[in-house]
């Protein structure tokens, strides 16, 4: 006979209940916490808080910091100092000036009008202003300034070449092909290689004058110069006070006609004071006074013989 077990269920089968069955903590948000949470979930406020607020704080802080004049000045001084220290670095220093495409006289002039005391920082060079100054010289057609490697200020100049000597009311001046003033000269002897033009308004038609002079090369050794008459036409002045009066229009053709006449009949070698080509139909000759008397005498002799 087996003993009856008093406890039908062994203890290990017994299921325990958890000791502390407190419910999950689930605290209610306060009314304000709830409202702030909802506000935070609103896209507008969210953007305002995430972007607007930092921007406002930074801008406000900067405004407050710079609102004080002393601090602003100190900051500006600091910035200027840094800027200067960078500008003064040897990499940016310019030590000498090189001038290209200019005659020695022009170079001297340029050096005179550009009072740069080297060495100087390239940040301090006002190249535009200097270029205007150089270009303002009469003898300079165009100028380019640049700072090249090695700390050299290179000035490349396009120099005007004098083409004629112009005797004006003010004095003797050199003009280039376009009629622009190049320089003043004290005497005609200073530039004997250049042809001479004279008269008011001659500087405006230098190109035409050069054409006429080019056409006059066959009688080049006799040409003294060109004179602008009444600011409209040219007189070619030869030695022995001879003049060839050219028309307003087509002066080169008229001159070539005279030269052709001279070749055929030696007109210019005779005692003629003026060859007047103003009338396009025919040349008109004016004899000198002595020649006229002589001509008249011959004519009277002829008349006598005839009579």
């Amino acid at each position: 006979m087996r003993p009856i077990r008093r406890d039908p269920t062994p203890r290990r089968d017994m299921r325990p209940i958890r000791r502390d069955p407190t419910p999950r903590r689930d605290p209610a948000p306060s009314r304000w916490a709830y409202r702030i949470e909802r506000m935070w979930l609103t896209p507008f406020y969210r953007a305002l808080l995430r972007k607007g607020l930092p921007v406002a704080v930074i801008a406000g802080g900067a405004a407050w910091y710079l609102g004080d004049a002393d601090r602003l000045d100190a900051l500006r001084g600091h910035v200027a100092e840094i800027r200067r220290s960078i500008e003064q670095r040897p990499e940016f220093m310019v030590d000498l000036m090189r001038i290209e495409g200019a005659s020695p006289e022009l170079s001297a002039d340029i050096r005179e009008i550009l009072p740069v005391d080297f060495p100087v920082s390239s940040f301090d060079l006002e190249l535009d202003h200097m270029r205007e100054q150089v270009a303002g010289l009469d003898a300079v057609a165009g100028a380019e300034l640049r700072v090249v490697a090695g700390g050299v200020l290179e000035v490349s100049v396009d120099e005007r070449l004098p083409a004629v000597v112009w005797r004006s009311r003010e004095g003797l001046e050199l003009l280039d092909e376009g009629g622009h003033r190049v320089a003043a000269i004290p005497a005609r002897d200073a530039r004997p290689d250049l042809p001479l033009v004279a008269g008011d308004g001659a500087d405006r038609v230098v190109a035409e004058a050069l054409q006429v002079l080019a056409a006059a090369t066959p009688i080049g050794d006799r040409v003294r110069g060109l004179t602008r008459m009444g600011e409209r036409r040219w007189d070619l002045v030869l030695d022995r006070d001879q003049r060839i009066m050219l028309p307003e229009r087509n002066p080169v053709a008229a001159l070539e006609r005279v030269i052709a006449l001279d070749d055929a009949q030696d007109v210019l070698a005779r005692d003629v004071s003026v060859v007047d080509m103003r009338d396009g139909r025919r040349p008109t000759l004016r004899l000198s006074g002595k020649a006229l008397e002589e001509l008249r005498r011959f004519r009277s002799l002829d008349d006598g013989e005839d009579a």
Binding site: P29, Y34, E37, R38
Partner: peptide, 16 residues
């Protein structure tokens, strides 16, 4: 209780 539950759902949905 309604506040709690609405806030929880909003937080999960990430929308108001």
């Amino acid at each position: 209780a309604i506040r709690t539950v609405v806030q929880g759902a909003q937080k999960m949905a990430n929308v108001r």
